[in-house]
Each structure stands twice: as C-alpha cells, then as structure tokens.
C-alpha cells in the first residue's frame, strides 16, 4: 500500500516537472519574480550576519582595570590569578605603569613635557577581554571588579557596544519585515499561478470528481506544482545572493587593499542556504494550498 502511495506521488512529481518544463517561459518568469523577492531579505540578512561576525568573533568587548597607586607586587599577582579564574573573562594583559609611561612617551607629541613630570602619574593596569557582550552582564562585571580592594577604577566603553547592538537589532528588524513582505509576495504570485492552472484544468478536475477522485488526489498535483516552483525560487535567490556577495567582495578587495586590511564578506552558509530552500518550498506550497482550497470547491460537477 505504501509502495503504491509512493508510486503515485512519484508519478505526480514527474508529471508536474514535465508540466513545468513544457511551459519554460511562464515557469521561468514566475520563478524569477519569486526568487528576486526572496533574494532581498536574504542579501540584507547576509550583510547583517557579517556585521555580527565582525563584532563578535573579532572584537570581544574589552575593559581596562586601573589599580591603586600604592599597590604591591603580590597583590598584582593575586589579581592576575583571580582574573584567570573568573569564568566571564577570556584573557588579561598586565600593563605596568613604567611600560604605560614608555608608550605614552612614544606616542606623545610633547615627549619633553611628559619626561619632565616629577613622577610617573600613570597607574598599573590590566586590560581584560570579556566573553559575554550583553550590556547587563558587562555592567554587572564592572561593578564586581570595582568592589575589589586593589582596583581603583574600571573603564569600558558601553556606549559603543550599545550603539552597535542597536544597529544590529535594527538590521534584524529590517530583515524580518522584508521577509514578511517577500513571503506575502511569493504567496500571492503562487496563488495567482495556481488559479490560472485550475482554470485550464477545469475539465480534468470535474471528470476526476465524477469518477471518484478524493479532494487530496485532486489537490496533489497543484501542491507539487507550488512546492517545486517555490524550491526553484529558493535556488534563484541563493544564486542571486551568491553573485551579489561575490561582486561586493571583488570591490572590497580592491578598496581595502589601500588600507592593508584583509577582509571579505562571508557568503550564505550551506546550512542557511538549505533553510532558505526549505522556507521557499513551504511558501510555494502554502500559496498553492490557499489557492486550491479557495478555487476547487467552485468546480462541482
């Protein structure tokens, strides 16, 4: 029984493919329209995702801990130990006040002024890299560290992080909104395509009903039609995004070459690409399903 059921589905699948290939222009047109509609949110998604990668992987948030002036070497070792054991902290680097002064001398435009200072005004410091980048956790960590007796001051630039986070959030919202709009466009295109299909297959539907076809049997070819076109639209969208990223990267390489920066955009991952295909297939199917249930009952023998 399952074998027959599978054979039936295979038959419908093959005959649907044949039908799509038999009308290549019509098929291509609607698939390309749906593919373009899908490629817009996917492109923005890829750009936002790249932004997130740049932020997270390459730039973990950093904090600077300034120590008290009269601190002893053993206290410094103790702090280093504590920092290493802290689960939130990925790494720490000690900058002794002498080295800090040295760096200041090298960078300063007024080296003599600095040199003439009666004593080194700079404190010892640790620069730490933090695992978590949520603002609340960073604030909490800042408070904890501030309460350590040897630490005078904890500095980190929260505004910068917050701004970037807000930018990312905006990016995601835009992606979601355009996904919603594109989905509606795809469902609408599919709805109309299936409506026309049903009109041309009126006789077949009527006769099939007369000789005992169930509704699922009549629906099946249209659902396959919708799903297959949705899948093809997903492939087109993937292709468009791939080409787009490729072209941008070519330009980026030329541009960033002057700054000696080695950076390029990551294309859509295979995993996300497959999700895209799945999503577009479901959209095509859904458009077909809505159209069929809307139009089929009108054909009663």
């Amino acid at each position: 029984m399952i074998r027959i059921w599978l054979a039936q589905h295979w038959f419908v699948f093959v005959s649907t493919l044949k039908r799509l290939v038999a009308a290549p222009i019509t098929t291509l047109l609607s698939v390309v329209i749906m593919g373009i509609a899908l490629s817009v949110p996917v492109s923005i998604y890829v750009l936002v995702e790249n932004l997130r990668l740049v932020m997270n992987e390459k730039n973990h948030p950093q904090m600077t801990l300034f120590l008290k002036h009269d601190i002893k070497q053993e206290n410094i070792d103790k702090i280093r130990q504590d920092l290493q054991e802290h689960p939130q902290i990925l790494g720490s680097e000690f900058i002794a006040k002498d080295i800090a002064l040295q760096q200041l001398l090298e960078k300063s435009e007024l080296p003599n002024t600095v040199k003439n200072l009666p004593r080194n005004p700079l404190p010892d410091a640790f620069v730490i890299t933090v695992r978590d980048d949520s603002i609340n956790n960073l604030r909490e960590l800042q408070e904890t560290l501030k309460s350590w007796p040897a630490i005078e001051f904890v500095q980190f630039d929260s505004e910068w992080i917050e701004r970037l986070k807000a930018l990312l959030q905006l990016g995601w919202s835009i992606v979601l909104m355009i996904v919603a709009i594109s989905s509606i466009a795809i469902i609408a295109v599919m709805f109309n395509t299936i409506r026309l299909q049903i009109a041309t297959k009126r006789d077949e539907i009527e006769i099939s009903k007369l000789i005992g076809a169930t509704d699922p049997f009549i629906r099946r070819p249209f659902l396959y039609f919708g799903a297959l076109q949705g899948l093809a639209a997903g492939v087109i969208a993937w292709l468009i995004v791939f080409l787009l990223i490729h072209l941008i990267n070519e330009q980026l390489i030329v541009f960033l070459h002057f700054y000696e920066i080695d950076f390029f955009l990551e294309p859509l991952s295979t995993e996300n690409g497959l999700s895209l295909l799945f999503f577009s297939t479901v959209l095509g199917w859904l458009g077909a399903r809505l159209s069929v249930s809307n139009h089929l009952w009108q054909i009663e023998p």
Binding site: M1, I4, W5, Q8, F11, I207, S208, I211, G212, A213, T214, F217
Partner: peptide, 8 residues
C-alpha cells in the same frame, strides 16, 4: 484515470 484515482 479511474485506476489512478483508486490507487492501482
């Protein structure tokens, strides 16, 4: 057609 409909 009738046989397809009846799952032959």
């Amino acid at each position: 057609l009738p046989l397809q409909i009846s799952n032959f």
